[in-house]
Design a protein around this nucleic acid. Structure first.
Lengths: 126, 126
DNA sequence: CAGAATCCGTTACGATACTG
DNA sequence: CAGTATCGTAACGGATTCTG
């Protein structure tokens, strides 16, 4: 008799597809970095390029459009000469920052555990 | 005179590359869904396939290996017949769940703003 | 059941060059 | 300065088949 698939307890958020859809908010190369760079306030296109070294103008431009379309950032053209454009997190976009923080925190601790787990491998209770 | 690139205020976490590295924790298709599915406890391979409908065995298997290697989940082979394998979040892996929750929360509210922003477009203070 | 192996299509990224 | 256009490539995921 085949094993029974246990019911998945705790399913307040309905389908897993919802999750996928929401994760798309920060999808695409460098999107998290853009949010990260804007955490302290507005920033211009070329400043973002400097903040995120290996990003190309094409990809940065694309990512910013997507983030704007999704309501994560706002775009404001300044009447300077030459013209410059400022990007800023929306109120909701700013709420993504703590989430990124949490992920980074876990990442750092995982790395620490890794490197010290090597040295002193097994301390297991019998 | 060209505009000066303003210093990026607030830079406690050093390079943006660190962020990229940490975001890799939840990278790959369905990885967030796996973490999500394991939030309430251990789950078998085939149960995860049911939890996350469109995932193929190949990709699920690959994602689980990666997550295990990164210390996000643990893998335990049960001595049953036929053999089954249980996956479970590690302590650190479990800390990713609130972060995913936050992102989902923002995602839902962004969607709400979107759909009601259509109907009643402009209410701006002079 | 849990998964490895193979093949193959899509895509998204990077590099480069060009525009307003 | 702030992008857009075009091109080539590598990586990723999906479908299918096979094994212990």
């Amino acid at each position: 008799m085949p094993l029974k698939v246990r019911k998945n307890r705790a399913e307040p958020p309905p389908q897993p597809c919802r999750l996928t859809e929401c994760m798309a908010l920060i999808a695409g190369a460098w999107a998290p970095n853009v949010i990260w760079s804007l955490r302290a306030g507005a920033r211009r296109f070329s400043e973002l390029r400097v903040d995120i070294p290996p990003v190309t103008a094409k990809v940065l431009s694309r990512r910013l459009s997507e983030l704007e379309e999704r309501g994560v950032v706002t775009r404001r053209v300044l009447a300077t000469s030459p013209p410059s454009v400022e990007y800023e997190l929306t109120a909701l976009g700013a709420e993504l920052v703590p989430a990124l923080d949490a992920i980074v925190s876990v990442g750092h601790r995982l790395k620490a555990v890794r490197s010290q787990g090597r040295r002193q491998a097994k301390t297991r209770p019998p």
